[in-house]
Amino acid sequence: MTTNDVLRALTPLISAHARHLPATASSALTADTRLEQDLRMDSMAIVHVLEDIEDTFGFAIPDERLAGVYTVGDLVDIVRSTSEAPERVA
């Protein structure tokens, strides 16, 4: 998936939990959009978005990736890196 594909897929998930959206949210969300400052999301809302991402894309987000999620771009990076990672055999 390209960055733009992931961003389009994430927009409704993010919008469902944001307290504030720009007037044209679908075109206004960019990789640089800050979750807390720009969208007024608290930590619980961000956790819900992460859960929605896991459900939508069908993978678990590793715990070490949860820290440092501040922007929409961070969420895009998580999806791209996790969905492109090779399957690990135990």
Rank of each mutant, 00 (worst) to 15 (best):
L50K: 07
R65K: 10
I61P: 02
T11R: 13
A16W: 00
D52G: 05
A85Q: 15
T56P: 10
I14P: 07
A67C: 06
I46F: 06
I14M: 00
G68T: 11
A60K: 13
G68I: 11
V76Y: 04
T30M: 06
V89I: 15
A16P: 04
I78R: 01
T33Y: 04
T30W: 05
D5Y: 02
T33V: 04
M1P: 04
L75M: 07
G68K: 12
E64M: 12
A90F: 12
P62I: 04
L7H: 07
N4Q: 14
A60M: 09
L10P: 02
D55Y: 08
M44W: 11
V76K: 01
V89W: 15
R88N: 13
P62S: 07
V47M: 10
I78S: 03
M1N: 02
M44H: 09
H17Q: 09
H20F: 12
A90V: 14
L13T: 05
H48W: 12
S15W: 02
A90I: 11
M1Y: 03
A18T: 02
A85D: 12
L50W: 01
A85S: 13
H17D: 08
A90N: 11
H17T: 06
F57G: 02
V49T: 08
T33I: 04
R40H: 09
V72D: 05
L10R: 00
R40N: 10
L39M: 01
A18W: 03
S43M: 06
A60L: 09
M44K: 09
V79I: 00
A28M: 09
H17Y: 08
A25W: 07
T2G: 07
I61Y: 03
R88D: 14
F59W: 02
Q37P: 08
D63C: 09
H17V: 07
L35V: 05
A31S: 13
T3G: 09
R8H: 10
V76N: 01
L35P: 00
E84I: 05
T24R: 15
P86M: 12
D32Q: 11
I53C: 01
H17N: 10
T3H: 07
A25I: 05
R80V: 12
P62R: 06
S15V: 08
D32W: 09
R80L: 14
T71M: 09
L39P: 04
H20A: 09
S83D: 05
S43C: 10
E54A: 02
P86D: 14
G58Q: 00
A18V: 03
E51F: 13
D63L: 14
E36I: 10
I46K: 03
A67H: 14
